[in-house]
């Protein structure tokens, strides 16, 4: 069984982890096209490449980010999400219809 290096808990069997999908930047959900939104929700490149993914260490409920090569299945790096997400995300208040 593969081992994954959790930034908080160290090397553990892959059975302790849950896959959380690719790390993707959400497009501007109010102004992007339906197509752009559908690509964000449903489309995956599925390429032979290094992918950046969410992984959860289930026993400690700890999410982290892993960079994994899809061909070798090797993790090149795992790190705390705060390295990538370090500022508070705000969502704009919608523009009222009449102001458009």
């Amino acid at each position: 069984m593969k081992m994954i290096n959790c930034p908080l808990n160290g090397l553990r069997n892959s059975s302790e982890f849950v896959y959380g999908g690719e790390v993707k930047d959400m497009p501007d959900h109010r102004n992007c096209s339906d197509r752009e939104w559908a690509e964000y929700i449903f489309f995956h490149d599925n390429a032979v490449a290094v992918v950046t993914e969410w992984w959860l260490h289930a026993p400690s409920s700890y999410w982290f980010i892993g960079e994994r090569h899809t061909a070798s299945d090797e993790f090149l790096r795992t790190y705390d999400p705060s390295e990538r997400f370090n500022t508070r995300v705000e969502f704009a208040v919608p523009v009222v219809e009449s102001e458009k």
Binding site: L56, S61, S82, R88, V89
Partner: peptide, 20 residues
Amino acid sequence: VYRQMLKWNAQWRLNIDIAN
């Protein structure tokens, strides 16, 4: 639900604690 909440706030960085 708990896992999704944690994952969202790992991105949003709101000032909260979430406990199951």
